[in-house]
Design a protein around this nucleic acid. Structure first.
Length: 370
RNA sequence: GUGGCUGUAGUCAAGCGGUUAAGACAAUGGAUUGUGAUUCCAUCAUGCGCGGGUUCAAAUCCCGUCAGCCACC
């Protein structure tokens, strides 16, 4: 019996934005939600105490990486990902479809599955939709993702169509392979930047009746305008009562635009990845801490921010840490950015509930550089 | 004092007669969207210690000079 469900709590009148709640084995998640990426078992540069003080509701794990290390045996022994990493809140696992597409390994995709190379020792490994789901169940993921075939969004139509069709066949096989029905398995819509393909994909997956749907294949080469258009276009095609997850996106503006389009869930490496390069995000836009002007700037990243980094440390100090490649600098900026993303989502939820999201989002999108 | 070696960007350094003086680090910008990100890209010496000379052509050869290092008195 599934212990996963989605409740719609409010709907914005002027946009497609929704306020909701996901229920999982490991707890509730308020949506819209941003999910921090924790590929190897930690959100890079942060630890779980940091995540808890920030208010992170759910983190991502990566099937591809966890399959290669530590692998199934250790995960099984340790009680899955939750047990291994001492995290008792929800997790979502990406299937590895994207990694297999994005990593420059030689890989062979056939109807049976995908043969790929380990980034650790280059050994040949294999995922079928069935073995992939079996492994995600070993991980113990609260929300699993189907193994999909991801192609650049700029692919020609026939390439995008073939990838999409195979994604559908694999989605069906993934669903049939699922044994632990307490957890959720989401389908992934493909179709690159072709409206008819997106429509066909949303329809085909809807018929398989997944408890949630992801919009995949974006943020992989298309323009900002195309991304916004296809997010909006695709979200509208998905069942109203199911959560919608825009994979791999994005910048603060991307998130707010996607929420306006009716998306409920996001994940992205931006807040933590950019943090390590000294890029901090605020409601007023980016602060590029590497820049020389900040060497003597005694103000915090954002005076209005309540995070401990902004309460205690100056841009000048963070500039120093980042320039010196100090891990503490990575942590402090990662902390701030994750805090900011969490507060941005919190703000969106509050504005949707209050019925003021349309004007808030308009203000946000026009007032700050992305 | 004598002999030798060395002086090229902020630093280290290639070049040893022939088009616009490698490269690395630093510096200064920029990029980054389902983490192979301590990554990637761009810019950065009208000038080779200084002054002469030889040559069609000199960072490269010659003379002088200054500085540093080493050895010997």
């Amino acid at each position: 019996m599934s212990r996963f469900s989605f409740e719609l709590l409010a709907k914005d009148q002027q946009t497609e934005a929704r306020r909701g709640k996901l229920n999982t084995v490991h707890g509730e998640i308020q949506t819209p939600v941003f999910m921090s990426v924790g590929t190897f078992g930690s959100v890079r540069a942060l630890d779980h105490v940091d995540l808890e003080t920030i208010g992170v509701q759910i983190i991502l794990g990566n099937t591809y990486h966890l399959y290669l290390r530590p692998g199934a045996d250790i995960l099984r022994e340790r009680g899955g990902y939750h047990g291994l990493i001492h995290w008792n809140a929800p997790i979502l696992t990406d299937s590895g479809g994207f990694q297999i597409f994005s990593l420059p390994h030689q890989r062979v995709v056939s109807e049976q599955g995908v043969e790929f190379r380990s980034y650790i020792d280059q050994a040949a490994r294999f995922f079928s939709p069935e073995s992939n789901i079996a492994f995600q169940e070993t991980i113990g993921s609260d929300i699993m993702m189907v193994l999909d075939v991801c192609v650049p969004s700029t692919s020609p139509r026939d390439v995008a169509a073939k990838a999409m069709e195979r994604t559908h066949r694999w989605a069906k096989r993934c669903k049939q392979a699922q044994k632990n029905h307490a957890n959720a398995l989401f389908g992934i819509v493909q179709g690159a930047i072709f409206e008819d393909l997106r429509k066909e994909s949303a329809q085909a997956l809807s018929e398989l009746d997944f408890p949630g749907y992801a919009i995949g294949g974006l943020a992989v080469g298309e323009t900002d305008e195309e991304r916004e258009h296809f997010t909006k276009y695709t979200a509208k095609l998905l069942p109203v009562s199911k959560p919608r997850y825009l994979m791999g996106v994005g910048t603060p503006h991307d998130l707010v635009r996607a929420i306006r389009a009716g998306v409920d869930m996001f994940d992205c490496i931006i807040p933590t990845n950019h943090a390590r390069q000294g890029v901090a995000y605020t409601f007023q836009g980016k602060v590029k801490l590497r820049r020389a002007v900040f060497a003597t700037d005694e103000t915090p990243i954002d005076t209005a921010c309540g995070c401990f980094v902004c309460r205690r440390y100056s841009r000048a100090y963070l500039h120093q840490l980042i320039k010196c490649d100090e891990p503490t600098g990575w942590r402090l900026v990662s902390y701030h950015n994750t805090w900011f993303y969490e507060r941005l989502m919190e703000r969106c939820r509050a504005e949707i509930s209050a019925g003021t999201f349309a004007s808030f989002s308009q203000w946000f999108l026009s007032s700050a550089e992305d």
